[in-house]
Amino acid sequence: MSQYYLSHLKELESEAIFVIREVVAQFEKPALLFSGGKDSIVLAYLSRKAFYPARIPFPLVHIDTGHNFPETIEYRDWLVNELGVKLIVGSVQESIDKGRAKEETGYNASRNSLQTVTLLDTIEQYKFDAAMGGARRDEEKARAKERFFSHRDEFGQWDPKNQRPELWNLFNGRKHQGEHFRVFPISNWTEMDVWQYIQSERIPIPKLYYAHQREVIERDGAILSTSPWLKLKPTEIPSVRTVRFRTCGDMPITGAVESTADTIEKIIEEVAASRKTERGTRADDKRSETAMEDRKKSGYF
């Protein structure tokens, strides 16, 4: 007799597909926020499964800091073609040029927080009423309390103390004119689940995630790739090391880890043995204890 139960990955997949379909059913103009990172890649593949054999009925939106790893852009363009989905790019550079955002200065300057302005402008320009993202609750403590359907007021802000209760699989996407929702279909996935899913579904991922040789420097315990946007201190001498990335964000602040994991199997082994969270490699979260919560309230991903 067959067993009527699912593996944890299949259950998480089923939950995510349900949420993605709920978004398309409840909203008029949804979009998928695509960063080029593994979480948003998994989200794009789940979206394909949700609507097959129809095409994904919403565009991918990339908020482009202009400080990307070239591998991210190469992969993004390949994926858009592979899935037959529309791509919309919101440019942080344009927001800066228009005076909507102000570039940070100094050694740890990053365009990461500037993305919020561009993101909200893009949502307004295209009148998106739901923006799906690949954020997970296990990533960071402020995210542990995030809903699947997260309501944003007309200024794009999150009010963590006034969230709608979310029960069973009944998601309430009702809203007033000008408000929108952020939706997180893979809320319940962990980093390990994402990797195991990539493995079991044979999802191609950007080369950055695999061990490779790269010119890097070490700063405050983080390994940073050299790039035109990384201002070196006089004492910082770049060297070539074998590294890989656990997340892929804004190039000057995304830390690498020393690794020889050049296959998915080896990456999973490494993730299983890792004693540090993946966001531990992100300089932006280290600014203060509530850095993520503060950014989220103002409309960050």
């Binding site: 944890h8 296990d138 542990a144 309390k145 103390k161 319940n188 962990t190 390990m192």
Partner: peptide, 14 residues
């Protein structure tokens, strides 16, 4: 105040 979700796994279950 709110519901917080936590995750852990053992070799047997998530």
């Amino acid at each position: 105040i709110d519901v917080a979700y936590r995750y852990f796994a053992t070799p047997k279950r998530k």
